[in-house]
Simulated assay, not measured.
Amino acid sequence: MTHLPAHLLNGYRNFMSGRFTTESKRYQTLAREGQSPSTLIIACCDSRAAPETIFDAGPGELFVVRNVANIIPPYTPDGSHHGTSAALEFAVQVLKVQDIVVMGHGRCGGIGAALNPSAQPLSPGDFIGKWMSMLAPAAEAIAGNGLLTQAERQTTLERISIRYQLANLRTFPCVKILEEKGRLRLHGAWFDISTGELWVMDPKSGDFERPSLD
Rank of each mutant, 00 (worst) to 15 (best):
L4R: 05
A6T: 06
N10M: 10
G11R: 03
F15V: 01
S17W: 13
S24E: 14
S24T: 12
Q28R: 15
E33N: 15
G34T: 05
Q35R: 13
S38W: 14
T39K: 10
A49T: 04
A50H: 11
P51T: 08
I54Y: 11
I54V: 07
D56S: 15
A57N: 06
E61A: 13
F63W: 08
V64S: 03
V65I: 12
R66K: 11
A69I: 07
A69R: 04
I71A: 07
P73A: 05
G79P: 00
S80K: 03
H81P: 03
S85R: 02
A86F: 07
A86N: 01
L88E: 00
E89P: 00
V92H: 03
Q98S: 12
I100R: 02
V102T: 06
M103N: 04
G106E: 01
G110Q: 09
N116Q: 10
P124D: 08
I128W: 10
I128P: 00
P137K: 12
A139F: 09
G146M: 11
G146V: 08
L148I: 05
T156F: 12
L157D: 00
R159L: 07
S161N: 08
R163G: 06
N168Y: 08
L169V: 03
R170K: 13
L178E: 08
G182T: 08
R183D: 13
R185S: 10
R185D: 05
G188P: 01
I193R: 09
T195M: 13
T195W: 15
T195E: 10
G196R: 14
D202G: 05
D202S: 07
K204R: 12
F208M: 01
R210I: 06
S212K: 11
